[in-house]
């Protein structure tokens, strides 16, 4: 029998929804959770399926995508260690309205609906942490919506790079920030609502201006200050 990683030893525990629970309470979560490794490309759940619990990301990155009537996939959210997914459908009792796919090898815990609802009822800190995550997600969705309406593609790309730099950035010794996430051009294009070709054109422009650098699929931000100017961020 394989012993699952304990919540207390999870690398993302400090940013997870169970961060304020005691050791004994963590043990109860350990008893009820199922921990799995998902390889790149494997799905956690598919749009239209029935939700029966929530997924807590321990390590790795998961993309949440929606498929339109034309069959085109667009990324609505990127999740990493400490984030939860599948909770919205769980509370609204709707089918999943999006698909969750691992974009790199990831370790994810599943907690069934009966248990998580019991914990929410009994532990206010867990409820507050879930509300906090829902509020953060809503804030990001609102910002994205206003960006799509009010900004041009160049501003949206600059904003996306800054967002990725905050969520997945690793500061290097020389002061530059490496975005530790390998997204395809197509994936990035869907995130800012533009065509592949347009995205490639603006990435080249950013590179020419020495704002960013590219090593394979990895993007390094050279000049965050100028990128912030280009993103036309509100104060």
């Amino acid at each position: 029998m394989k012993t699952p990683t304990k919540c207390e030893k999870c690398p993302s525990n400090s940013s997870g929804i169970f961060c304020e629970l005691s050791s004994l309470e963590h043990e109860d979560v350990d008893k009820h959770k199922v921990i799995n490794k998902y390889k790149k490309g494997q799905t956690l759940f598919v749009q239209g399926n029935h939700p029966f619990g929530i997924f807590c990301i321990s390590t790795g990155n998961i993309k949440v995508t929606k498929v339109g009537a034309d069959g085109k996939e667009s990324i609505v959210r990127l999740c990493h260690g400490g984030d939860i997914i599948g909770h919205r459908s769980l509370f609204t009792e709707e089918h999943y309205t999006a698909t969750a796919t691992a974009i790199e090898d990831s370790e994810v815990c599943f907690i069934d609906k009966n248990f998580i609802l019991k914990v929410i009822n009994e532990k206010p800190s867990v409820s507050l942490n879930i509300i906090n995550k829902l509020s953060t997600d809503m804030g990001k969705a609102e910002s994205k919506l206003s960006s799509l309406h009010q900004k041009n593609v160049r501003e949206r790309l600059a904003e996306l790079l800054l967002v990725l730099s905050t969520s997945h950035g690793k500061k290097q010794e020389d002061g530059r920030t490496k975005i530790d996430l390998k997204l395809t051009r197509e994936e990035m294009a869907t995130m800012i609502g533009t065509a592949n070709e347009t995205l490639i054109r603006f990435i080249s422009e950013f590179k020419d201006e020495k704002l960013i650098e590219q090593v394979g699929k990895t993007i390094i931000i050279n000049n965050e200050e100028k990128l912030t100017e280009w993103a036309n961020l509100p104060y």
Binding site: K2, V34, I35, N36, K37, Y38, K39, Q42, T43, V46, G48, N49, H50, F52, G53, F110, D112
Partner: peptide, 19 residues
């Protein structure tokens, strides 16, 4: 009970079924 309208993967090799 619930009905699946389309084909789907319940679990993959190497994983523990979540239910």
């Amino acid at each position: 009970p619930l009905k699946y309208s389309s084909s789907s993967n319940l679990f993959y090799a190497g994983q523990i079924p979540i239910v």
